Computed example of a mutant assay.
Amino acid sequence: MSQFVKNFTFSFWAYCSGHLLRDREEEIGILYEKINMQEMLCRNGDTEMQVMDEKIRFLKLKVDEKKRQIKLWFKALPVKNALDAHLVVLQIQYSQCKDRIKWMEETLDPPPPELLKKIEQLEVELVQKEEKLLETDFLYKHVSRLTDRIHATAENGKQDTLLLAKRTNELRKMIKDRTRKAMALVAELSMKQALAIKLQQEMKDKEQFLMTVSSRIAQGLPPPKETEDEWLKILHNERMQKEACAAEEEQAAAPSSIHMTAEQRPTTYIPDDEHSLPVPRPYGTLAPFKPREPRSNRRHFRKPTVKPIEM
């Protein structure tokens, strides 16, 4: 019996506990729904608060702008008062001017005869102006015709001017060429004159030397020492030349000699000194350089162009 009671008690307690748990679960679900609703309301409230904050900020900006405009209007208020006063003065002046014009129209209106006389005078002046205008138009047309004629003459004269300029350039070129040739001839003439003066001086020296030698010979005196030395040198050179020719002939006649076809190099020269006779002298060891004939490769080199001398 006691066991049955225990089982019954345990079953009843389990049933009550399950019923309570189900009730608590339902209450918890309701509470969760309320919590979700409260959170959603909070989020909506936050969003509305943000919107309201934006509106408040915008309204504050508008208030600041209005305050700034009010300050500006307060600053411009003295200017407005001055402008209003000036406007009143101008209105008074305008009314005075209107009254003055009305009074002048009433009091100073001329009678009809004077008006007719003034109209006739204006018509006469208008006719005079028209006549002057016609004269000016006639003069303008005449000047235009003359200008066109002068322009045509100038156009025709351009060709003559061009031909004259070309002819002038050709004449200038010819004058330059003639001047250059004349200068070249003058330079050549100067060289010839210098050479003639030199030859005349040499001739005078030779005549003087010849007169000296003749006078010494006429007096029975021997010629000067220089003449004797020159004569001995000439004899010595002739003897040396004869010996050289004889040696060459002997060498050529020898059976072992080699016949040379090369051009003979000069071994003597004629001095151009003023105080020496025009007698050939041997070069000795210091013979002058003789350039050889140009080879065929010189055809690849272009001759230099001689620039004309401009004066």
Rank of each mutant, 00 (worst) to 15 (best):
H19W: 13
L21N: 09
R22E: 06
D23P: 00
I28P: 00
G29W: 14
I30V: 12
E33L: 06
K34S: 15
N36Q: 14
M37Y: 07
M37K: 13
M40F: 04
C42A: 15
C42P: 00
R43T: 11
N44F: 00
N44Q: 11
G45I: 03
G45P: 00
G45V: 01
T47V: 05
E48M: 03
E48H: 04
Q50A: 07
M52C: 03
D53E: 09
D53G: 01
D53Q: 05
K55I: 10
I56F: 06
R57N: 07
K66A: 10
I70K: 06
I70C: 06
L72F: 08
L72C: 06
L72W: 06
L72R: 08
W73V: 13
W73T: 11
K75S: 08
K75W: 04
L77Q: 15
A82N: 09
L87P: 00
L87D: 07
V89G: 02
Q91G: 01
Y94D: 11
S95C: 03
S95F: 03
Q96K: 05
D99H: 14
D99M: 09
I101F: 07
W103T: 13
M104G: 01
E106T: 04
P110Q: 01
P110T: 02
P111S: 08
P113T: 00
P113A: 03
Q121K: 10
E123C: 01
